[in-house]
Nucleic acid binder design. Structure first.
Lengths: 297, 297
DNA sequence: TTTTTTATGTAAGGTAAATTACATGTAAAG
DNA sequence: CTTTACATGTAATTTACCTTACATAAAAAA
């Protein structure tokens, strides 16, 4: 066990100080520190009474927690928090651009955040709600078997989507990893089945071929691709052109995942009556197999 | 009593409200508003006693001044100031949410977009640049072998990260899909190796055990988890607590992927001199295997 | 099982803060 | 030279908060 819980305190924000001890809190104490970190630092800028009520614990518990963290009283804790906030606000160059993405030479995190939100905005403008809804409607028809396939990089998204859709509806199948097995899997695709394809540059020959053949067998094709459109678009019934541009050449997959996730949410809402039972069963499975840690809440 | 000059209040910060009335204050009142504006807004985040002392006036004078400005009591004044500050702090990335959270019954796409950007914002506030940089530094040490593992849902992210890191540096290994093979893979982990673990709720027993054992073998552990922290945090050297909350119960993975991607970008920048050669080789491979469509541009 | 420890809440205290009431002083108006 | 209105401080009251002491229940150890 790597104990060393009390590392020499070089954390210069209270948040870091708390996080460095996150493993040594009791349940009630966890409620408190979670709430503190949740919308830091303003969550701490209230009276101890208010704070304790927001957390659903008693005020002495708050006191004890703060003592544990290293403050002799609530008052001194809040004073330090206030100082830290003061520092942050009055030091715009160093600290404030931790929150502001507009600084020209900013941290990587901010640059990537900026890029991703831009991509998201453009993609949302590009894809109409009707188009999206049409896809959801198609996926809601459970008599159509659903197949999912992705490429070298996008196969991760294919898996992610598969894992979630499997919970929501039946008849969901993902293509095997080995490309050599794809022709075999193609045989399972019947007319009126649905095939979801992820293909962003660089477009892969196997995906193109597979889509063409699936199309020939009468399958509906939904395509997740980038703004330059994969050749698969020629066979697709629904194409989602997603902006994947990264600043210096790299491609971002975040927005692609976003749309996959939105699809899951929309479908779950639509099928809820039929789905809830399915999810309950799954919960039971999890409980029985004990693969998961029991929830403490 | 000067009730008349109450202009229709379209100033939405308290500072503006004060400035709009700067001509109607008595000397003692001037001391107060000047001090308030001087280092706004933190000057107002103290007790009325403290505030009055800083200004060299009495507490009732402060009260009267605030009443004049338009607040019924010091308490309500401070509450509004607090709200304003909160607003400022939680509005860094998206200045004005273009996708309107204000539409009550908006389209799923907008709701999910709102959720995701909120998650992103909170996570960025939660994770310090130093912490992130420390992780990048660790991953840049190529003499340390790098192992990646994820759970039921997060294994998709593990794969995504693996695919990208493999391009950037050598000595990257992902855990096999079958959990039964994990103990075997554990044997490959040497002291000073690095293990990246993805574990969001529901936390998986196998991941916890694996992390414990890897830790015992002397490996450094980097953990991607959610705001409630996987138990793996107890063994981790670096923990990224990422907000994954979805509106109606579902968990979002988009921000988790964001941080994985940011890690890739940062590492690529850092290792560029050593990496570029590697990437050129990869390009050649792609050309040779003809798996990809030739670029037409 | 019994005992001890740990976790957490209830209640009471003392204290500081916010608000109100009153008093004093200053400056302009009669 | 009053008188009145305004400006501001002192003091008293009430309210809310922080803190400590004690009690209880659950968990761990014996």
């Amino acid at each position: 066990m790597n104990d060393s819980p009390v590392t020499p305190d070089n954390s210069h924000t209270i948040a870091e100080l708390i996080r460095s001890q996150l493993n040594q809190f009791s349940p009630a104490e966890m409620k408190i520190v979670n709430h503190l970190l949740a919308n830091y630092p303003m969550s701490g800028m209230v009276s101890i009474t208010e704070l304790s009520e927001s957390c659903g614990v008693s005020t002495p518990t708050v006191m004890r927690t703060l003592k544990k963290i290293g403050y002799s009283s609530f008052t001194t804790f809040q004073k330090e928090l206030k100082d830290e906030l003061q520092q942050t606000l009055s030091d715009p160059i160093t600290k404030h651009d931790q929150w502001a993405a507009d600084a020209p030479e900013s941290h990587v995190l901010n640059k990537v955040a900026e890029t991703v939100t831009t991509n998201l905005r453009h993609s949302l403008n590009q894809i109409s709600h009707e188009q999206f809804d049409a896809i959801v409607d198609l996926l809601a028809q459970q008599e159509r078997a659903l197949h999912i396939v992705g490429g070298r990089i996008t196969s991760a998204f294919a898996r992610y989507l598969n894992t979630h859709l499997e919970v929501i509806r039946e008849n969901v199948h993902i293509f095997p990893e080995a490309v050599a097995l794809w022709p075999h899997h193609l045989l399972k695709i019947k007319p009126d089945d649905v095939l979801i394809v992820f293909d962003v540059r660089r477009y892969e020959q196997d995906l193109i071929t597979t889509s063409r053949l699936a199309n020939a067998r009468g399958a509906k094709i939904i395509l997740f691709t980038d703004q330059w459109l994969s050749p698969v678009a020629g066979y697709a019934d629904h194409t989602l052109p997603i902006r994947i541009e990264g600043k210096s050449g790299w491609d971002s997959g975040v927005v692609t995942l976003f749309f996959a996730e939105a699809l899951v949410v929309a479908l779950e809402e639509k099928l809820w009556s039929q789905t809830s039972e399915r999810m309950r069963e799954l919960e039971n499975m999890f409980d029985l197999t004990e693969r998961f840690k029991k929830r403490t809440e």
